[in-house]
């Protein structure tokens, strides 16, 4: 078990009679970047909170960094960096005061030096006296990451860290995450962005509190059993409507002037290509299509009791 940062079995959390997380299993190897995907309200945040000891699961058990998630949350908290979905530093404290406060929470001995180093790394050394609330979204994100890295955790849990951040800041953020991963830090990150998902070593897809599928980004489309072709056409709108009406097409997604056409059966897709002439090209990967397919499928699968509970 020593090569696993997280290993949980059958995690279950009930809020108001609703199973928000239901029988969740997961193994995260040390040093990996593990992506958490799933629609809003699928239980990603709740799962993360259970794994770092903020919530007590109704059922299930497991370890995080070798510590029991039910009984040793104090040990886990000291070794995990958790970045919440919302900006959760004090807006009415300065950047330095915020970092210093976090340092005190972890009882760091060389607090001053670490805060100084973090400020220099962030490029915020000159603005250390500025109120955290006055920072832009991208800077707040970087500051939050710096704050939860201050105690040099072995495991980072990032809950939608790049939501609402511009593409440049998002890319910088991921460069930083890869650097940390290269240093041996395990990263568990939830996201909605496919370009972020492909950067993960492993992905788990969650819907309605259950893990539907997990694997490497390469494996996922194969596991889902979906093939995708790209077609370009002059009259994209007409072709899109025609393909959507075709019973052999599972899913059509529009990307600018191109259409991504997916199906589960190779022979039937071949027939589709014959019926609708155009420039067809096989798409490698097709991760996003696989997830859109999973999302629409999951809603159907769970249209029973689970979906009626809201989400």
């Amino acid at each position: 078990m020593s090569d696993l940062a997280i290993s949980v079995r059958g995690l279950t959390k009930v809020f108001g009679g609703r199973r928000v997380v239901d029988g969740f299993d997961m193994d995260v190897p040390k040093g990996a970047i593990y992506g958490f995907l799933g629609p809003n309200g699928s239980g990603k945040t709740t799962t993360i909170r259970m794994m770092c000891g903020l919530l007590t699961p109704e059922a299930g058990d497991g370890t995080c960094l070798g510590f029991d998630i039910l009984r040793q949350s104090q040990e886990i908290k000291g070794r995990v960096g958790y970045m919440t979905q919302r900006f959760s530093l004090y807006e009415d404290l300065t950047i330095r005061e915020n970092l210093d406060f976090i340092g005190r929470m972890y009882r760091m001995k060389d607090r001053g030096a670490r805060v100084d180093r973090a400020l220099v790394d962030l490029g915020l050394a000159e603005r250390a006296g500025q109120l955290a609330g006055s920072l832009s979204g991208g800077w707040k994100q970087r500051l939050s990451l710096a704050a939860c890295m201050l105690h040099e955790p072995e495991l980072l849990m990032l809950d939608e860290p790049t939501a609402g951040v511009d593409p440049k800041a998002r890319r910088d953020f991921w460069d930083e995450i890869r650097r940390l991963s290269a240093r041996g830090v395990t990263v568990l990150v939830s996201t909605h962005y496919m370009d972020e998902a492909v950067q993960c070593d492993f992905i788990a897809y969650i819907a309605y509190g259950r893990k539907l599928i997990s694997g490497t980004p390469k494996d996922i489309p194969r596991l889902v059993g979906l093939q995708t072709w790209v077609v370009e056409a002059g009259e994209v709108g007409t072709l899109e409507a025609a393909l959507k009406a075709d019973p052999d097409v599972a899913q059509v997604a529009r990307f600018g002037a191109m259409l991504h056409v997916s199906g589960t059966d190779e022979a039937r897709l071949e027939a589709v290509r014959q019926r609708h002439p155009g420039q067809w090209q096989k798409l490698d990967g097709g991760l996003e299509e696989a997830f859109i397919w999973l999302m629409s499928g999951a809603q159907d699968n769970f249209a029973g009791p689970a979906a009626r509970g809201g989400a």
């Binding site: 903020l54 908290k77 958790y82 919440t84 959760s88 929470m105 939860c148």
Partner: peptide, 13 residues
């Protein structure tokens, strides 16, 4: 309300 409690209790405090 501001969400700072969540980050606070995620530390060993």
């Amino acid at each position: 309300e501001r969400g700072t409690m969540e980050a606070l209790i995620a530390t060993p405090v």
